[in-house]
Nucleic acid binder design. Structure first.
Length: 304
DNA sequence: AAACCATGCAACCGCCAGTAG
DNA sequence: CCTACTGGCGGTTGCATGGTT
């Protein structure tokens, strides 16, 4: 039994948002916060469903959005997070301050997938295409370490939390390239040249290692839950992976680090002042749309 | 100049989980 | 418990735009 869309019962507008609608929604949320999404359209005088308002806010109107094209650094991070998290776009987005899951999903589907394929990497498994084509059954259990990307395939049902060595991100870790604690690690060989990246599989674990693994998992979880830690880790020790991406330092965005940004009711009133600096951060590739929104947002937030 | 095609992006759809009544 | 409602998420679609023939 298919349900009717939430916009169906009333004659609600669908499709692209007009600037007037944007302004109404922005002003309303600026003034009152979003509270209950389902009641927003009525309160704001919009002929939209609450879901649509929420989406518009999250994907476009939020003041902390970083607009413009993705940097190489961000693309790199997305690829690597995808290798770990799969299509959990919201979780990936939570690690990229100012980016939305929708944006990342679009980037992945339209751009990154292709890039990986061009490099001979299967975007689903993050394994070399040759290996994937040869069949999962035969040689795939014995990947060689050098020049391969033996990430275990994540298929549905979703895998357990990634047992990724925190070496990957932890700046305090000196990276032992000979072992890891989980099914996957990304590492960099001496010099950090992108072409020297080594991806490895886990070795069979000893009991001691299992204990360590638990610790590592904790660290990993902490890292994943903290964009700031993640950013710091990235700046200090980023895997200069085979994607051959130069890592540059990134301005530090303050976000609610306790969980994904979308799950925090009324998060922005407390943080908008810190988040607003995005407006004076020069975008690498500022676009007109971004400028418009910055102007609009500045008008709404900057002087109220 | 027009038609066609490819690409990127915004928004919708449907499912699911959490929760209040 | 059960039900309805709500928010969140991932997959998908449709449109606008730019490039090519």
């Amino acid at each position: 039994m298919g349900r009717q869309s939430c916009c169906y019962k009333q004659k609600l507008r669908k499709g692209l948002w007009s600037p007037e609608e944007d302004e109404k929604l922005l002003r309303h949320i600026t003034k009152y916060g979003h509270g209950c999404w389902s009641s927003i359209p009525k309160q704001a005088g919009l002929q939209r469903c609450g879901k649509s308002c929420r989406l518009r806010w999250i994907n476009y109107l939020r003041p902390d959005l970083k607009r413009g094209t993705f940097s190489q650094e961000e693309e790199n991070l997305i690829i690597e997070l995808h290798a770990v998290l799969g299509n959990r776009w919201s979780q990936i987005a939570a690690r990229l301050p100012g980016r939305t899951d929708n944006e990342i999903k679009n980037l992945w589907n339209s751009c990154l997938k292709k890039k990986l394929k061009q490099k001979g990497i299967d975007p689903v498994t993050h394994k070399p295409l040759s290996e994937v084509e040869n069949g999962e059954g035969n040689g795939s259990n014995k990947p060689s370490l050098v020049g391969h990307h033996p990430i275990h395939q994540y298929t549905s049902p979703p895998p357990p939390p990634p047992k990724l060595s925190s070496n990957w991100f932890n700046p305090e870790f000196s990276p032992p390239m000979t072992a890891s604690y989980g099914p996957l690690y990304y590492g960099t060989t001496n010099g950090g040249s992108a072409n020297n990246t080594t991806w490895g599989l886990v070795q069979t674990q000893t009991e001691e290692e299992e204990e360590e693994e638990e610790e590592e998992e904790t660290k990993w979880t902490e890292l994943l839950n903290s964009p700031l830690l993640m950013a710091a880790a990235l700046q200090n020790q980023t895997p200069q992976s085979y994607y051959n991406i130069e890592i540059k330092s990134e301005p530090c965005y303050l976000t609610n680090s306790s969980s994904s940004s979308s799950s925090n009711d009324m998060w922005w009133p407390q943080t908008q002042q810190q988040q607003l600096p995005l407006q004076h951060e020069p975008l690498q590739n500022p676009d007109i749309c971004g400028k418009d929104m910055q102007t609009l947002t500045a008008a709404a937030f900057g002087h109220i």
